[in-house]
Measured scan of single mutants.
Amino acid sequence: MAAGGDHGSPDSYRSPLASRYASPEMCFVFSDRYKFRTWRQLWLWLAEAEQTLGLPITDEQIQEMKSNLENIDFKMAAEEEKRLRHDVMAHVHTFGHCCPKAAGIIHLGATSCYVGDNTDLIILRNALDLLLPKLARVISRLADFAKERASLPTLGFTHFQPAQLTTVGKRCCLWIQDLCMDLQNLKRVRDDLRFRGVKGTTGTQASFLQLFEGDDHKVEQLDKMVTEKAGFKRAFIITGQTYTRKVDIEVLSVLASLGASVHKICTDIRLLANLKEMEEPFEKQQIGSSAMPYKRNPMRSERCCSLARHLMTLVMDPLQTASVQWFERTLDDSANRRICLAEAFLTADTILNTLQNISEGLVVYPKVIERRIRQELPFMATENIIMAMVKAGGSRQDCHEKIRVLSQQAASVVKQEGGDNDLIERIQVDAYFSPIHSQLDHLLDPSSFTGRASQQVQRFLEEEVYPLLKPYESVMKVKAELCL
Results as ranks from 00 to 15, higher is better:
243 Y>R: 03
335 A>S: 15
438 S>V: 11
50 E>A: 08
30 F>W: 13
43 W>V: 00
246 K>R: 06
213 E>H: 15
339 I>A: 09
234 R>T: 13
214 G>D: 12
112 S>K: 03
265 I>A: 13
210 Q>K: 15
408 Q>K: 14
147 K>L: 12
321 T>E: 00
61 Q>S: 09
66 K>A: 11
18 A>V: 13
411 A>F: 04
426 R>Y: 10
21 Y>D: 00
259 G>T: 04
457 V>Y: 02
32 D>E: 15
333 D>L: 02
223 D>M: 06
112 S>I: 01
147 K>S: 12
364 V>P: 09
25 E>V: 12
86 H>S: 00
66 K>H: 11
211 L>T: 15
403 I>F: 08
440 L>T: 03
398 D>V: 13
271 L>Q: 07
416 Q>G: 12
84 L>V: 05
252 L>Y: 05
183 L>M: 11
54 G>T: 05
177 Q>V: 14
172 C>M: 06
324 V>I: 09
75 K>T: 14
266 C>S: 10
351 I>Q: 03
246 K>N: 03
403 I>V: 13
297 N>V: 02
92 V>P: 00
374 R>W: 07
124 L>M: 11
363 V>K: 05
23 S>Y: 08
278 M>C: 12
210 Q>S: 13
377 L>H: 03
189 V>H: 07
193 L>I: 14
235 A>W: 13
127 A>S: 12
329 R>S: 02
261 S>L: 02
419 G>M: 11
10 P>A: 15
266 C>R: 02
103 A>N: 12
84 L>I: 06
325 Q>H: 12
465 V>G: 03
433 F>H: 06
89 M>E: 00
306 S>A: 08
377 L>G: 03
17 L>R: 01
117 D>Y: 00
383 E>G: 02
211 L>R: 03
49 A>N: 03
143 A>Q: 04
369 I>D: 04
133 P>Y: 15
30 F>P: 00
300 R>C: 15
138 V>L: 14
475 V>E: 10
459 R>I: 12
193 L>R: 03
369 I>L: 10
400 H>V: 06
75 K>P: 08
442 H>L: 13
376 E>F: 07
303 R>G: 02
217 H>T: 14
463 E>A: 11
205 Q>D: 01
183 L>G: 05
405 V>D: 13
460 F>P: 01
367 K>G: 10
33 R>H: 07
465 V>S: 03
183 L>R: 04
282 F>A: 11
48 E>H: 06
156 G>N: 02
126 N>S: 14
43 W>M: 07
189 V>K: 12
391 K>M: 07
379 F>M: 13
129 D>A: 12
181 M>C: 13
190 R>C: 10
53 L>E: 05
324 V>A: 12
138 V>A: 14
223 D>Y: 00
176 I>C: 12
55 L>T: 05
244 T>E: 00
135 L>T: 14
444 L>S: 04
207 S>Q: 02
257 S>W: 08
52 T>W: 08
57 I>V: 10
91 H>Y: 07
274 N>E: 09
415 K>Y: 06
231 G>D: 10
151 S>I: 09
328 E>W: 01
200 G>P: 02
478 V>H: 08
366 P>T: 08
321 T>Q: 11
114 Y>A: 00
123 I>C: 10
6 D>F: 08
391 K>G: 15
101 K>Q: 08
330 T>E: 00
6 D>V: 11
329 R>Q: 01
352 L>M: 13
134 K>W: 09
159 H>T: 02
43 W>E: 07
341 L>P: 06
318 P>Q: 04
294 Y>T: 03
414 V>R: 05
119 T>H: 04
22 A>W: 08
377 L>M: 03
418 G>Y: 02
215 D>E: 13
58 T>F: 11
263 H>Y: 05
74 F>S: 14
187 K>I: 13
333 D>N: 01
194 R>A: 07
